[in-house]
Amino acid sequence: MKQQIVTKINGQQHVLQVSPRKTLLAMLREQLQLTGTKEGCGTGDCGACTVLLDGQPVNSCLVLGVEIDGREVITIEGLDNDGELHPVQEALVERGGMQCGFCTPGIALNGAALLQDNPDPDEAQIRRALAGNLCRCTGYVKIVEAIQEAARKWREKSATRTPAPEPADG
């Protein structure tokens, strides 16, 4: 039997009828036609299905649609800011951090969440954060470079928005 859920997806409120056994991934792709979220393994290993659930990256293949009742989801379709790409997306394009593109939505969302937590990650931190996103094409080097580049842009952007406080010791 279907159940009704109320949820915010990419900033927009939705009232949906969903069968409990449907994963969040299937619900996004089949019911909402948000096909930017990909299914790779379906078992939590590849990260192609990554979405942000209340701001945190999760594997949507291991979440039930009914579980997001009252919660908020961002998919790759909602990562940009009114058509302006997120710095991580921009850097992935510019730095060649994507080839076939299948892993890219997951990497972009997970990378964006990383910068939110840690605006200045080192390479080891980036690799650890992206350990759950498999890429069969790039060899990861360009992805890591792209995230580092995005982090620089991200810091510049936030610096212009809110002036950094003067360091106490001058």
Partner: peptide, 9 residues
């Protein structure tokens, strides 16, 4: 445990 995505759940 697992990945960042797994640890979040």
């Amino acid at each position: 445990v697992g990945s960042a995505q797994i640890r979040n759940r």
